[in-house]
Amino acid sequence: MKRPVSFNPLWVFFIVIFALPPLLDPYWVDVLNNVGLYAILGISLNLIVGHTGLFNLGHAAFYAIGAYTSAILNTKYHMPILSILPLSGFTAGLFAFMVMRPIIHLRGDYLCIVTIGVGEIVRIALVNNIFGITGGSNGIFGIARPELFGYVIRSPHQFFYLIWIFLIITVVVFKRLEHSRVGRAFNCIRDDEIAAQGCGINVASYKLTAFVIGATWAGMTGNIFATKMTIISPESFSFWESVIMFTIVILGGAGSIEGTIIGAFLIIGLPEIFRDLSSARMLVFGLAMVIMMILRPRGLIPPKLRSYNVRSILERDYSV
């Protein structure tokens, strides 16, 4: 069977973006860095919200767990920050597994409030300096810069390549996931949970899988965020943060990776472009959100429907 390889404009976009930084000043590169970070977070949340249809407004909790794991291991035990990357993902994923396991059966908006609750509990625990290791509201400072092959990443320009290469890896991984058997199961649960159950899909376990994968990825992003900021505090992981990630996914087009990247550009980029409006900038931003949603109710780039070439399936040779 031959599948026509379709040309994806996403790669052109990446090439253009990678050529940009030398032409930009550090401020705009830093804006792009934030866009990149939020795009990664968005893609990880997209798996939960867009693909599996679970209303998650507490993604910042997983992001926070990853960031704090990295910060604590780096500042207390002086482990190189990038070497903690897998571990931060693992901790966040494990946390998601333990917390979500008992409540995964909740439906729609009930799940939403529970994820908000988890996010708030994590934030309050961080503020109250749980186990004496999170530094309370001061947070943790003095997190090391990443070092790759003896080369220290410091300036916004250098971070750009770290973040955006990680974004490309993320896109590749999540694209593969999307088209895998697991990805199809996620979509099936989103479209009709009972039908999914009827097809023999273990709904609870797949929902949990979506949460764990999304959380793991958010945890790893937390690691990069921690090393980029060198200081992290609970304020950076508030409910508002989860709302931003959620908005990026829905505005861009739930279920679409390209859409999520555009969503990150708009949600993170627009307030910066509106900077000249001074104190009215958030007003315009709120209005823009409403208008964009009305103009493109399914998001800016809604996901393409899965299409199958029926003929090739019919003509497939099933003989052994």
Partner: peptide, 8 residues
């Protein structure tokens, strides 16, 4: 989508 509109 309406939720995002509400947030806006």
């Amino acid at each position: 989508s309406a939720v995002v509109s509400a947030l806006g």
